Amino acid sequence: MVRCWERSQTALEDSSCTDGSPTVSPQFPHKAFWAIVSATLLLVLIALSLTGHLGLSQQHTQSLQVVRITAPDLTGSLVNQSALVDRQNDLVTISVSSQNNHTSTVLFDIKHGVVCYKPDNQETCFLRNMEKSDYENMNSLLLDSTKKESHLLLSGNHTQRQTEFLGVLGGRQVDPSSLEQPFQALCQNSAIYWTRRADGPAKQRLVYFCIDICFPSNICVSVCFYYLPE
């Protein structure tokens, strides 16, 4: 006769097995259970992180809008330029292409109130503080960039043209580390100078270069630079 042992709460009691085989107490597979739970939590965390990353990327992409502006120059030829509007960071980057296929970049940092000019084929950047007219022109771009990409064709008869002269303070080279990140990226490995508005260069001073910028408000500004006497 086969005997089996059953554990009670008070003592071990000797009893007979009904089927003649030992009684086996079932054991829950704890290791398998916790492995499944851990794997499930890991998959949930990965899914949440991917969803958050995609959501932020999509939000940032939606905040970037392109405005393409075509305007006639003084000779009547059409000049193309594009403005990349970053609403999230309050940045407007304007790329101006000249007739000889050279592209200059003008970066408006609306949050910090600074404009940066980066002419093509030059390892130099020029800074100036934004003025009231700059904020008005930026508002015209922000209002027009309601679509992801829009194209404006300015009429030569209704476009107002004006010229601004900026004197370059050659003795005040700027430390790039003191600037905001967008300016550091644009002016990497370039000499950086502050400028100030001036009535115009003296007769003995020649204009260094000019950049023509057009805005949706039918205003085209020719910004001309020259170096001030040391």
Rank of each mutant, 00 (worst) to 15 (best):
T70R: 12
L107S: 04
L42G: 00
C17F: 05
W34M: 06
V24N: 10
L179R: 01
S8H: 03
T10E: 06
L152Y: 14
F165V: 10
Q204M: 12
D175I: 14
Y208M: 14
S177D: 15
Q160S: 10
F165D: 02
S38Q: 05
S21C: 12
K118Y: 14
P26L: 11
Y227K: 14
A47I: 07
S217I: 03
W34Q: 12
L166N: 01
P26E: 08
L43A: 02
P119E: 00
V168K: 00
V92W: 05
C220W: 00
E123Y: 02
N189Y: 15
H112S: 12
K147I: 05
L48T: 00
I36E: 01
A47Y: 03
R3N: 11
Y226K: 09
S98K: 12
V96Y: 02
L43K: 01
S150M: 10
F33T: 02
L143W: 15
Q122I: 10
S217C: 05
F215C: 02
P29K: 02
T93K: 13
T40L: 12
Q204V: 13
W194F: 14
V223E: 06
A191R: 08
Q162W: 09
D109H: 08
I219W: 02
F165W: 04
L179P: 00
V66D: 09
L56P: 07
C125P: 05
L84R: 14
C187K: 06
C214Q: 02
L84V: 15
I36Q: 09
K132N: 06
R172I: 14
T70H: 15
G113N: 08
L41M: 03
C220G: 05
R172D: 15
H60T: 11
T146I: 09
S177G: 11
Y135E: 10
L186V: 07
D134I: 08
R3V: 10
C220P: 05
V168G: 01
T159V: 09
S177Y: 12
V37A: 01
L206P: 12
Q59S: 11
S104P: 03
S63P: 00
G167P: 01
L153Y: 06
Q99C: 02
S77C: 10
L74W: 13
S178C: 03
N121V: 05
R161A: 04
D144A: 06
F209G: 03
S8N: 02
L107F: 10
F33G: 04
D120L: 05
Q122L: 15
A71R: 03
I69E: 01
L43F: 00
Q122A: 13
V207Q: 13
T75I: 07
S16Y: 12
N218P: 04
R205I: 11
Q58G: 12
R197A: 13
S95H: 06
L206N: 11
Y135S: 13
S63T: 15
Q122D: 08
D120Q: 13
V207C: 07
P22Y: 12
S38H: 07
T61L: 14
L45K: 01
I110Q: 07
L43R: 00
V79S: 04
T103A: 13
L56H: 11
S49C: 02
L107R: 14
A185N: 15
Y193C: 07
V79W: 03
V106A: 13
D14I: 08
P176Q: 03
R3D: 14
A83Q: 08
I211W: 00
G55R: 10
H53M: 11
D19I: 05
Q188H: 10
